[in-house]
Design a protein around this nucleic acid. Structure first.
Ligand SMILES: [Mn+2]
Ligand SMILES: [Mn+2]
Ligand SMILES: [Zn+2]
Ligand SMILES: [Zn+2]
Lengths: 144, 144
DNA sequence: CCTCTAAATAGAAATGATTTCGTTTTAAAA
DNA sequence: TTTTAAAACGAAATCATTTCTATTTAGAGG
């Protein structure tokens, strides 16, 4: 429902433009993640004009405001996913069909087995990375 | 020791060329991760000729054979890290000074606290992503 | 409803990290 | 040594992503 997305945008301090609403609707309808260009190709038919930079810009802004989630992909291109789960959780992403499934807990070894068994899928690799500042740098404030 | 690296390369089925050895030595000497261009700038002075594509190629090959580890960075550029720890583990990377610290276990919540307290650092964000194939796709074999 | 303005968009062009490609060099097996 | 598949060169291409300036618009306020 457009109303719901408009509220989400307002809550994020963003104007509820038709293009933003269309992006959210499309991504929510998708079962998986999508690239900026893919979304653009689908959406540009629905508008007189729609620039690819606009799609990039909005996806980035929506990601920063937490409405969308970025997917880290081996091909290092950008992909976004609409996830309405407000709880802290992680994702299992399928590299083939792009489906995204929530993973509620954070124990990796156990998780891999769980995912394999529960969904019948196969975990080929996993990424766990903590980003931040080490003790020394946290004091100075960051430099680069 | 060059001998040790030569053995590592041989074990990986790669020729022990001077440039590969230099890359490994430099990365091992670094306490943190480095980009292809940074390595190239440092190393090209030590050779009559050293092409940036050669550095890229070797880093990728070394990463694929498990000798080096890729770092996932918010700026989405490539960074590599030399890690000799053969055990399964993950990394805490400092976005400021690029130091990399091993993280032996896989419980994220507990880990964030642990890292913060033990090293006095600050975890700004974390990435946990399982890559693989869902049940449906694992059967068919992958498509994209 | 209008007006007004900061925010959003267009679209062409630039960017720049990464890759490609055809040629030349070299590690190391025999 | 000889041989050759692998490695390196480096200029050029690629292409996803970003930048830039002019134009349009959402929505607050009247
Ligand atoms: Mn989710
Ligand atoms: Mn390590
Ligand atoms: Zn640091
Ligand atoms: Zn799948």
């Amino acid at each position: 429902m457009e109303q719901r997305h408009a509220a989400v945008l307002k809550a994020a301090g963003m104007k509820a433009t038709p293009k933003r609403l269309a992006i959210l609707e499309l991504l929510e309808a998708e079962s998986g993640y999508a690239s900026p260009e893919e979304l653009w190709k689908t959406l540009k038919g629905r508008f007189d004009r729609l620039g690819l930079p606009t799609v990039y810009r909005n996806l980035e802004e929506l990601s920063e405001s937490g409405v969308l989630t970025k997917v880290i992909h081996p091909n290092r291109q950008l992909y976004y996913y609409f996830c309405s789960n407000p709880e802290h959780h992680h994702h299992f992403v399928c590299l083939s069909c792009r489906k995204v499934e929530d993973i509620p807990s954070c124990g990796i070894e156990a998780l891999e087995r769980e995912v394999s068994i529960r969904n019948g899928g196969k975990v080929l690799s996993h990424i766990l990375q903590l980003n931040g500042l080490c003790g020394g740098c946290a004091k100075k404030g960051e430099k680069a």
